[in-house]
Design a protein around this nucleic acid. Structure first.
Lengths: 136, 136
DNA sequence: CACCTTTAGGACCAAATTTATCCCTTTTAT
DNA sequence: ATAAAAGGGATAAATTTGGTCCTAAAGGTG
């Protein structure tokens, strides 16, 4: 359970690739897709999300492509994951605290703890850190 | 992301109901389903899994039904969740450490941390605790 | 034994989600 | 103009989710 989907994996691979380019260097979606080993059209959708959320800057036409909108050290893994997978919510009842069935559910507190922990971990990892990691 | 499915929710509701019964009291699947507000045939499958894993004891025929196989204090939320949702694996690459694409993936360590944290949280909560919780 | 009750297990199915692909539009540089 | 790129919508196959249904097996009871 709790699995990241392909979309999430692709998103991470793609943005790490961008972070590994020389600062300011514009990358084509075709280039990122090839390097990250991700279907190009699918990755294009992912980067559209990134652009809408302000994680990357896109430009069209000749010489266009994608660049990080902020330093990689200012983009967290949480932002990247949530950009394509939505908010980290281990249980539906955490949305608006609506557990239904009369009264809050008994596991509410546990899931809130899980959510907080996972968010903290992912917030503590930047794309810069990942881009520099050699292994592990 | 990371959402528990209905199956997981139903599993938790069902086993908490069992834990709230007087010790040794046998419950019918129809009774548990009605009380937990879960489709009966679906819950039956869930309790089959519980029985196979030794979380509950089942008996057939007149007077049959389900009882906890151990004290509720000795059944963790993790066991219940994993019984129906499979192991807690935030990323596929944690299965056998096979990240593919030549070399371990850069996020491997992060996902392992997430996995460990979540497992620890869920291992720290017993069904007895949940059964006694009034709210939150 | 015959019959009823209850779980076990397999087959099946509809809906939702995932994992894409395709095509046309818009923007921009030359 | 034209070519190069991303933007955005429609579509679709595959997989997963969320069930249902039917028959079998096991265990009591008269």
């Amino acid at each position: 359970m709790m699995e990241l989907t392909r979309k999430g994996e692709y998103a991470i691979r793609g943005i790490i690739y961008l972070a590994q380019q020389p600062p300011g260097r514009v990358s084509l979606i075709s280039e990122i897709a090839a390097a990250s080993d991700v279907p190009q059209t699918f990755l294009a959708k992912i980067f559209q999300s990134f652009a809408k959320l302000g994680l990357v800057t896109s430009s069209r036409g000749t010489g266009g492509g994608f660049v990080l909108a902020r330093p990689a050290s200012a983009i967290t893994l949480r932002e990247v994951v949530e950009a394509v997978e939505g908010p980290i919510l281990p249980n539906r009842c955490l949305i608006g605290n609506s557990c239904d069935r009369g009264g809050p559910c008994l596991v509410h507190g546990v899931w809130r703890t899980v959510q907080t922990e996972v968010v903290n971990i992912l917030d503590g990892v930047t794309i810069e850190t990942l881009a520099r990691t050699r292994e592990s």
